[in-house]
Design a protein around this nucleic acid. Structure first.
Length: 352
DNA sequence: ATCCGGCTGT
DNA sequence: ACAGCCGGAT
């Protein structure tokens, strides 16, 4: 009897999969949920350290729920997609306060949690409770698209349905947790996006893409994202050992993170002393600033935008009355706040 | 220097 | 349908 896709995958997982992750085999829903939220849009290697720090600092969901926002954001700093952090806190508090700390244990209830979509609900349902839900993530799209030779775009409405149906069809209904882990690990280590290991692949015999030479063309995506460029000019305003910072609250990138005084411009500005002086005088009524370092612009690539960030250090002789919405903080206070990567990487390169 | 991969909320 | 980050690979 020929072995099925599912059986081959399960055998590979059992005998050849040596990918280790700290949450593998984990059964506590809190830990599984936490690891899945951290791993959304994030590589395992990058998320690992964050996972350990979160578990150490917040061993239970009660610990997380009672933590101050700012502390959690600081721990999340650098991971990106800061909405995930907001949703993480929201959901922790909801579970503790509305559900007596008891984690939901059905797919529908999991899906209703903020920050939990179909993928994460299926992951928690299967890993924590061994319920028969198939995860559909980028790995699953890739493995199924190649093995089955499906060229329907994965980001189309039709494609989503096709791949969900296929994923459920292939799921090992008796061992959903093991199967889901198997297919994702397989996609990550064998059926990789670039240079997949087809020669050593246990599924090579039945692979449609391999036999038609289309491995490198699958999976298909229909949308190519558009990027716009924005210019963020940060004035690092210093007055008596304190620096002015504000929290980002607008409906924009980096919500709830902190930043220095921001001047956003349409185009690259070539800042020189007279331009800076005029700008400060006209916009903030600041006179006779001591202009320090004018750093080279830094690039930050976001999902749909490219940020060109420039930092300019200024020491002020008087406290400007016209600054609104922010605060003067000491360096020690600033270290407690979470900043976007653009800013933390600028600050860290300052020291070195 | 540029490209690529990775889910959820509105 | 579209917007949100970062690191590693190329």
């Amino acid at each position: 009897m020929k072995k099925s896709f599912t059986q081959i995958l399960m055998d590979w997982h059992r005998y050849q999969n040596d990918r280790e992750m700290p949450w593998k085999g984990e059964k506590k829903p809190y830990r599984i949920w936490l690891s899945e939220i951290i791993l959304q849009q994030t590589r395992v290697e990058q998320g690992m350290g964050y996972y350990h720090r979160f578990i150490e600092q917040y061993p239970t969901i009660q610990d997380l729920a009672k933590a101050p926002d700012q502390e959690v954001f600081k721990l999340w700093e650098g991971l990106g997609y800061y909405n995930r952090c907001r949703n993480l806190l929201h959901t922790a508090r909801e579970i503790v306060h509305q559900r007596k700390g008891i984690f939901p244990d059905t797919y529908e209830d999991l899906l209703a949690l903020k920050g939990v979509g179909p993928y994460t609900a299926a992951a928690i349902a299967s890993f924590a409770y061994n319920l028969p839900y198939a995860v559909v993530d980028g790995n699953v799209f890739r493995v199924l698209a190649r093995y089955m030779g499906v060229d329907t775009p994965t980001d189309s409405t039709e494609g989503k349905k096709i791949f969900h149906d296929l994923a459920y069809q292939m799921l090992d209904k008796k061992e959903p947790a093991l199967y889901n882990q198997a297919i994702m690990d397989f996609g990550a280590t064998v059926c990789k996006p670039m240079s997949p290991l087809c020669a050593a692949c246990p599924l090579q015999n039945g692979c449609a893409a391999l036999s038609t030479g289309k491995v490198n063309q699958l999976p298909v995506k229909e949308k190519t994202l558009q990027r716009r460029t924005r210019y963020f000019n940060y004035f690092i305003l210093e007055y008596r050992q304190k620096i002015w910072v504000q929290q980002r609250t607008a409906k924009d990138i980096w919500q709830q993170l902190f930043e220095f005084y921001l001047v956003e411009t349409e185009k690259q500005v070539r800042w020189d002393h007279s331009l800076i002086q005029n700008w400060l005088r006209d916009q903030l009524n600041i006179h006779e600033p001591v202009i320090g370092k004018i750093a080279e612009p830094l690039l930050q690539q976001l999902t749909h935008q490219q940020i060109k960030g420039q930092f300019i250090h200024l020491q002020l002789k008087q406290k400007p009355a016209s600054l609104k919405g922010g605060d003067w903080k000491t360096v020690a206070q600033i270290q407690e706040l979470a900043f976007p990567k653009l800013i933390t990487s600028y600050l860290s390169q300052l020291k070195s």
